[in-house]
Design a binder for these strands. Structure first.
Lengths: 353, 353
DNA sequence: CTGAAAGCGCTTACAG
DNA sequence: CTGAAAGCGCTTACAG
């Protein structure tokens, strides 16, 4: 009675017939309902295996079963960061029986449609720019009761998985203090950007905690770009010279590094430099960049877990979940790892690309 | 008559009622069928807009409309490569009205289920390892008539979008010849790996074409790993010394570079080095690595176009599509770009991470 | 514990 | 050009 697997797929009707039961009973077995006689369930399971039966998603979803699909909206530019995030998300999704629909472009225009069409039941957003437009979308979704969570940047008070920026800044300051740096420049992002502000606050806090006077800190506003890191470094490099520079992100740290290269300043001998993000390029710079690493993969798993709990309990109140960062010490702060990456590459059989 | 958008979604029935027509007619308008009176169509469209109606995917798919979703199966380790690929794929998918289901892990086990459940109608695979298992899966899918295409590595004679490895090797050889290199080492991947073989063949071809004797080429087999690049370079660095080294991939080129660093050899003064892939780290090495760049984004768009044509015409015969590569000249081959990346970073407002 | 039946929201011959 | 009706493959009260 095994049907030709080539000719169409088996349906629940085929299974029911094969074991002499009704579709309803088969359905109950599939969905793991309690009230089915064990012997009956076994017969059904056998028939399912024999026929290589797979319940049709669309029929299930149509009749109220739910599509078990979520939309993951990522901006395209995140590259490796976004791949790691996706891995974390997928790991949890897979465990919980969800599939993932991904969009990296124009998701602002498509998100609602995906939901309206019944294609996805909820969303994870990694929003980074255009806060007003995101805010509008999120408000609409919230009003309609669509489950979603944000990754990375909080906006409004929607459920969000964010970084402990204060803690990251603090750790870096404590490390700077250990190195004995007294005069430091903080190359800030946009002065009104929450992440940058928190990194700065944490940095001040840690610096004092490390026994240094916060008077030794100069803050220079920028805009996160490599260019602005370069420019801010140029401004920072005035009398009295800083011992070290902490940039609000790695791109700005790279800009600062380029300035030093151009001026013939040695890093870390003349000035130490550190960043934030542990961007993919940071370990390849010369010297390799000391930085703060976000727990990217964990952000993914946490976000997906949060979304799933929201899917199951839409009324649940979820606020902000704050994830701790890690200090990554490389040569640019003066730690003796200079070009040590070489041996690491060889040992791990470095999996570049 | 505008229903509260909060309370459930409008159905085709709502639209039909709103304009006093039948569901069939509304359906025809939605699907752009010809035989509908223009005036009627307009009324329907207005009602659709008024009610903010979106056809339910599952109902559509169930009644034969097709789910317009494809599965993209990528190995997790590709990082930035895989993001760019996805962008290309998504661009075309979006234009053609398809959505994308992504899996980066365990897709070998899940691919068939995704199809069996009706979740996806076809696949794009970026397979890189375990050829036997992939081969088994692909054969089964082909037997069942499931549309799919491979990206990057061809396997069997399934539809595949591949790189012009011969052409890439040839371009590098021609460039080496211009530099006047006469003795060169080719650091090969596994001796039976098609990509590596083609890169080698192209290289020989180009070297001769450039007026140099292929006798000057030494080939050393490896396995693509950084470690093996290091070891092969150690073997290559024997009398008579090579002027230049071409590695079958950037990871091996990195290994070669590490060997040189350790031995105090200057690159490119003592020996030039080039790779293949333009891996994300290649431009950050010191010196930045000369390499061959695959058209990653175009591979994505081409793959998706191919899949869509297969979806529409399952019987169509699609073979291998070979895409050209680009030579990327940086400092490691002796071109005067030494550390020139700096200015490039600043000009483009380098979008790292 | 099990089954008959209604219904999910569409599409598509079949009539007219 | 348009509509009534069947059907896609499930789930889920409702009976028993």
């Amino acid at each position: 009675v095994v049907p030709d697997p080539l000719s169409g797929k088996a349906t629940i009707e085929d299974v029911a017939r094969a074991c002499g039961l009704s579709r309803a009973t088969v359905s109950r077995v599939i969905n793991g309902e309690a009230r089915v006689k064990p012997g009956t369930a076994d017969k059904v399971k056998k028939a399912i295996a024999d026929l290589d039966y797979h319940p049709n998603l669309h029929a299930r979803a149509l009749s109220g079963g739910g599509g078990n699909t979520v939309g993951i909206m990522l901006p395209g530019i995140w590259r490796s960061y976004h791949s790691v995030l996706l891995e974390g998300i997928e790991e949890v999704a897979s465990q919980e029986g969800y599939d993932i629909l991904v969009r990296t472009k124009n998701y602002l225009e498509h998100a609602e449609r995906l939901f309206d069409e019944g294609r996805v039941e909820g969303f994870l957003f990694r929003n980074i720019d255009r806060p007003e437009e995101h805010m509008r979308l999120f408000s609409r979704l919230a009003r309609r009761g669509v489950p979603f969570a944000l990754i990375g940047d909080a906006l409004g008070d929607f459920p969000a998985i964010v970084l402990d920026n204060v803690g990251g800044g603090r750790m870096m300051a404590l490390h700077f203090a250990e190195h004995g740096f007294r005069r430091v420049a903080f190359l800030s992002g946009p002065p009104d950007h929450a992440d940058s502000i928190d990194r700065y606050l944490g940095f001040r806090m840690g610096f004092e905690e490390g026994g240094k006077s916060p008077e030794g800190i100069v803050r220079i506003d920028g805009d996160y770009s490599t260019r602005s890191g370069y420019d801010s470094m140029a401004r920072a490099w005035a009398e009295p010279r800083p011992d070290a520079v902490f940039a609000a992100n790695d791109r700005m740290a790279l800009g600062a590094l380029l300035f030093c290269q151009e001026k013939g300043l040695r890093v870390p001998e003349d000035v130490a430099i550190a960043g934030f993000d542990d961007s993919f390029f940071s370990e390849y710079l010369s010297p390799p960049l000391t930085t703060v690493r976000p727990p990217v993969r964990v952000m993914g798993t946490t976000a997906m877990r949060t979304l799933i709990s929201l899917l199951r309990e839409p009324a649940a109140k979820v606020g902000r979940i704050i994830l701790p960062t890690t200090l990554v010490l490389r040569a640019s702060c003066g730690c003796a790892f200079s070009r040590g990456s070489a041996s690491a590459f060889l040992q791990d059989d470095f999996n570049g690309e």
